[in-house]
């Protein structure tokens, strides 16, 4: 598998985002028994952030286009 440095940066950024959202102190901010849009706030934010991260992984994990990577003048944009 062809790997590139940009993918790793993207991965680490998403990882940092996950750690930020799921770990204290941020988690304490929204961990309150409120109900928003019919759903508990914590439930909403945790699953929402989770879904967002999954989307982020999907963006980063798409195979790099062969055309883009063979043209030297065109730096592939891994983030799509």
């Amino acid at each position: 598998m062809k790997r590139s440095g940009r993918k790793q940066e993207w991965s680490l950024t998403m990882f940092a985002f996950g750690v930020l959202v799921f770990f204290p102190p941020l988690v304490g901010l929204f961990d309150k028994p409120y109900v928003v849009l019919g759903l508990p706030l914590t439930y909403l934010i945790l699953f929402g952030a989770w879904g967002l991260i999954i989307f982020g992984i999907w963006l980063g994990a798409r195979p790099t286009s062969v055309h883009a990577s063979t043209r030297p003048d065109n730096q592939p944009d891994e983030r799509g």
Binding site: V19, W50, I54
Partner: peptide, 15 residues
């Protein structure tokens, strides 16, 4: 959530 975070850094760890 933990496994999800690990799979985020898949290209560093899993590959």
């Amino acid at each position: 959530l933990g496994p999800t975070l690990v799979f985020v850094v898949w290209s560093v760890v899993w590959v």
